[in-house]
């Protein structure tokens, strides 16, 4: 979903850059609450994993592919503020070193993936947790997967809205909306599967490190101790 230079006009790109700068500034402040000596290394790893996984385009049919955006994955593993920073680092490196995603479009891409992707994923995940009320960590990967599925079409719709405001070429909005939504719902299914697997593998090894499951992991440990013979 990396927007190149030229798709959106200068005012729109400037506006998204301002929103992105504000969001990243806020995240630099708030992420401190999510990061400690234990979780900081996991946050580094999450950024690297998102970069690596974004190189792995999977086919979604008819000559089209998709790749992980990683917003929901990062938010569940390390918390939404830290996730915003992880995605921003990845997007900046991709744009500056690999010419993937425009430089004037960097703000747009941060808004789409590091803000909308991350926060949609996180809010859906939190909502599902309240609904399901899990007592253990086992269901967390599935909830993260569902949140990830939702996050991709929402990010695609955000691009459509930005394009409606500041797209350079005139395109019928209904057609653009349908095409973006259709393809990105398919890509979202891949996003959900990868997120479920990745979150599942960390839950299986160190659930206590997972931001979206830490409270459940602690509860689980207590259960084991009370049940064990003295």
């Amino acid at each position: 979903m990396h927007v190149p230079d030229g798709f959106l006009d200068a005012p729109t790109s400037l506006a998204t850059a301002a929103v992105a700068a504000g969001a990243v500034g806020l995240a630099l402040n708030r992420a401190r609450r999510e990061l400690d000596d234990r979780t900081a290394p996991l946050a580094g790893l999450v950024a690297v994993f998102v970069f690596a996984a974004q190189m792995l385009n999977f086919p979604v049919g008819a000559g089209t592919s998709g790749h992980l955006l990683g917003g929901a994955l990062a938010a569940v593993l390390v918390g939404p503020w830290t996730a915003t920073l992880c995605l921003t680092v990845v997007l900046a490196v991709q744009s500056l070193l690999f010419a993937d995603g425009g430089i004037t479009a960097l703000g747009t891409n941060v808004v789409l993936m590091a803000v909308v992707g991350v926060w949609t994923g996180w809010l859906v995940f939190v909502g599902l947790r309240r609904l399901v009320r899990p007592t253990g960590v086992g269901v967390v990967p599935a909830l993260a997967g569902v949140a990830a599925v939702v996050s991709v079409p929402v990010a695609a719709l955000t691009f459509t809205a930005l394009y409606a405001v500041g797209g350079h070429a005139p395109i019928p909005l209904a057609e653009l909306t349908a095409a973006m939504l259709g393809w990105h719902t398919l890509i979202g299914l891949g996003e959900g599967a990868i997120t479920c697997l990745a979150v599942g593998s960390i839950i299986a090894t160190r659930p206590d490190l997972v931001h979206g499951a830490r409270d459940l992991a602690a509860r689980h440990e207590l259960e084991i101790r009370t049940g064990a013979p003295a």
């Binding site: 979903m1 990396h2 927007v3 190189m55 792995l56 385009n57 999977f58 086919p59 979604v60 000559g63 089209t64 592919s65 998709g66 790749h67 695609a156 691009f159 973006m180 393809w183 990105h184 398919l186 890509i187």
Partner: peptide, 9 residues
């Protein structure tokens, strides 16, 4: 082995 097809956007 990643798909070389254009992405969704």
């Amino acid at each position: 082995w990643a798909s070389g097809h254009p992405d969704g956007l």
